[in-house]
Simulated assay, not measured.
Amino acid sequence: MRIDAHHHLWDLNAVSYPWLMERGAVRFFGDPTPIQRDYLIDEFRADADWFDGSVHIQVGAADPCDEAAWVQKVADANADWPMTQVVFCDVTADDLDGQLDRFQTLSTVRGVRQIVGRAPGEDAKTGTNGLLADPRFAEGLRRAGARGLSFDLQLIPDLYSDMARVLDHAPETAIALCHCGSPTDRSAAGHAAWAEALRLLSERPQVTCKLSGLGMFDHDWTVETIRPFVETCLDQFGPTRCMFGSNFPVDSLYSDYAILLSAMRQIVPADMHEAVFGATAAAFYRMGV
């Protein structure tokens, strides 16, 4: 099975996404205006027609339960397209167990996500970095893992060191590092510093890396500009701990799906394709269970 391990869907009539529909806003990944429209399963499947299934990742809905229930309905209505999902959950919440109980009534739920870091400017405003100093965050990670739920981790390189210490308090929780860890500095020196810092995460066997989202900090990317970052992830994590994700429709701001997939297939060695484009995600997200 070939699996896109990181994408989003949205029906603007079914679920509210305040961040997406804010007029005039420019986000760290650019101007969202072109994606301020429905992106539904049929369009995604047409984009991702090389694949056989996918993993839907929460995307900042006003009500995470509404989003999760809607994704479940989409999955149920498309039984020929295996799709699991990662939901939003504040793992520091006092009612964490109650939230997880509700989410786990949905058969597609495999993990949770709570963004730690998006980009330096935005994180300074939102204060999400403070999660790493909150002992409830590490405890929440541990409790999610004890239920068999994974955690999708989005953060920037400045936070790797603190995050590594947090992970040591929840060693049994499977972690999916989103977007290659969001390497923000694409210079040669930036790559070297990111690669060195990345070892703090890659040396922890509970962490699997998503080869995704590299266009968010390099809007004019080419095969050669993203190659060093993909190859470093493959070198540090190995193919059985790397999985491809399109990050569509966000990454549609920078290229179409076919161009993105072609680039990644060129960079990833042929003997790693089975793992990176399917088997790793199938095992991590328990596809077919």
Score class of each variant (00 low, 15 high):
Arg37Tyr: 02
Ala146Lys: 15
Gly190Asn: 11
Ala48Met: 09
Leu201Met: 14
Met243Cys: 05
Met216Phe: 05
Gly238Lys: 09
Tyr160Trp: 08
Gln104Cys: 11
Gln85Cys: 14
Trp81Asp: 03
Ala75Trp: 01
Pro82Arg: 08
Arg199Val: 10
Ala48Lys: 10
Asp80Trp: 05
Trp194Asn: 06
Arg265Lys: 15
Gln36Asp: 04
Thr84Glu: 07
Pro157Lys: 09
Ala144Pro: 01
Val223Cys: 13
Ala5Leu: 14
Arg186Glu: 04
Thr126Leu: 13
Leu211Thr: 03
Arg142Met: 06
His169Met: 13
Asp218Glu: 15
Thr184Ala: 12
Leu198Pro: 02
Phe217His: 05
Asp31Phe: 06
Ser161Gln: 14
Leu132Val: 08
Val166Asn: 01
Cys242Met: 15
Cys209Glu: 05
Ala69Val: 13
Asp90Gln: 07
Asp97Lys: 08
Phe237Met: 13
Cys65Arg: 05
Ser182Phe: 04
Met243Tyr: 01
Thr232Cys: 15
Gln104Ser: 10
His191Cys: 07
Gln72Met: 10
Val26Asp: 02
Gln266Phe: 03
Phe237Arg: 07
Asp47Val: 10
Leu167Gly: 01
Arg45Thr: 13
Ala77Ser: 11
Glu203Ile: 12
Gly24Ala: 10
Leu200Pro: 00
Ser246Thr: 05
Val15Cys: 01
Val230Lys: 05
Phe284Met: 09
Trp10Gly: 00
Ala275Gln: 10
Cys242Ser: 13
Arg23Lys: 15
Gln154His: 06
Thr280Gln: 04
Trp221Arg: 11
Phe28Gly: 02
Glu231Trp: 10
Ser187Asn: 12
His273Tyr: 07
Phe51Trp: 03
Arg147Tyr: 06
Arg142Val: 06
Gly121His: 08
Asp52Glu: 12
Leu153Asp: 02
Ser16Cys: 02
Ala46Pro: 02
Cys89Ala: 15
Thr184Ile: 15
Glu231Val: 15
Asp168Trp: 07
Ala144Phe: 02
Arg118Gln: 07
Val109Lys: 00
Arg147Ala: 09
Cys89His: 00
Glu43Cys: 07
Arg136Leu: 11
Val250His: 00
Ala68Ile: 03
Gly181Met: 14
Arg45Asp: 06
Thr108His: 04
Ala14Asn: 08
Ala138Asp: 00
Ala93Phe: 01
Tyr285Cys: 02
Arg113Phe: 02
Pro249Gln: 13
Ala68Cys: 04
Gly117Gln: 06
Phe237Lys: 07
Val87Ala: 07
Leu261Ser: 00
Asp31Gln: 10
Gly145Pro: 07
Ala14Lys: 13
Arg102Ser: 04
Arg45Tyr: 07
Ser202Cys: 12
Met287Pro: 00
Pro120Thr: 13
Asp220Gln: 15
Ala174Tyr: 02
Gln266His: 11
Ser246Glu: 02
Arg199Gly: 09
Gln85Pro: 07
Trp70Thr: 02
Leu96Ile: 09
Ile259Ser: 10
Arg286Ala: 12
Tyr254Lys: 14
Ile267His: 04
Trp50Thr: 08
